[in-house]
Amino acid sequence: MNISVRAPISKKSIAALVPFLLVSVSTSLAQHKITVDIETDTTIWAPVAYLSLIPDFNYLNTISYNHIIEQSGISKEGLYEFSTEYLPEEEHLYRVHFSKKGDPPASLILGGRDHNHFFLFAERNSNISVTVKSGNRFINDLIFQGYSPNKALQGINTMLEALDSIDQNGNIVNREYAIEAIYEDIKTYADTCSFPLPSLYALYNINYAKDYDNNPAFYRRYLHKWRSQKSLYFREFRSSIRGEIKPSWLIVIIAGSVMLSIILTMYLYSRLKKKNNKNPLSELTIQERKVFNLLKQGKSNKEIAEECSVSVSTIKSHVNSIYSKLDVRSRRDILDIEY
């Protein structure tokens, strides 16, 4: 049996679908990339840009080949480009850096006119463009377009630049106050920022570990706010904060040892007390107990031997055994025993 099914599509409806198909095909063919439009002086800098994936925020100032994932030469248009199609699906922090001619590719310069890198957030298939504000040269006053979290990053970087400028221009008297004020601004920014990773990036730039001692409630609230965040960045942050909250292992071990000693002492004491409370006569044999009662009555060995119908030497042996078991030395001591 043959069943033929005919799709009920008219020529008109096919014509209507064509624009949608074209749009979806062109979207799938469009390249997702990070485009960096920064003018580099090629007499100083090698015409290559490197892209590193920063696995957690503790590595912000670390340079390693292990982090470099891509490099780009300069295009005819004077641009550096990195495809984002192979990047991890989830959002990560990346660093783009340039190396001076003669320096190794893995080269990091922090501060000064030769500051050679910048950070950006990206995820798979992001389209990001980075340019320098007109009038500025090299990595100075960057403009990010195409991926919203980088706008927040830009805001944080502006505040961090203000921090650097205090060191360079501020006077010693008001420097500390000014730095504290900017730290507070950055913290407020982190608290109100709607993008989780830029928010956390801000905290890592104000030495949060030190600030935690002054305001642990802020950090507890912060962790609660972002409790659904499962990225490595947040896991690392959570573990460092919990490390602050948890007592150290040393304290746990010392407390455990003290508790154990107390329990052991109490046990030994109770055993000793029990032993002391025990009737000492219970350790005597029936015959010894009979002899003991006669000794209490003040009878001599001979009298006891006659009463028990045994020899005097047997009674002497019983008496010695009684002395030993009751820890006494004389008949007088036996008379003093109360039971």
Binding site: N61, I63, S64, Y65, D103, P104, A106, S107, L108, I109, L110, G111, G112, D114, D164, D167, Q168
Partner: peptide
């Protein structure tokens, strides 16, 4: 690997 930091 090379690194440089400076602060004024």
């Amino acid at each position: 690997v090379s690194g440089q930091m400076q602060k004024a």
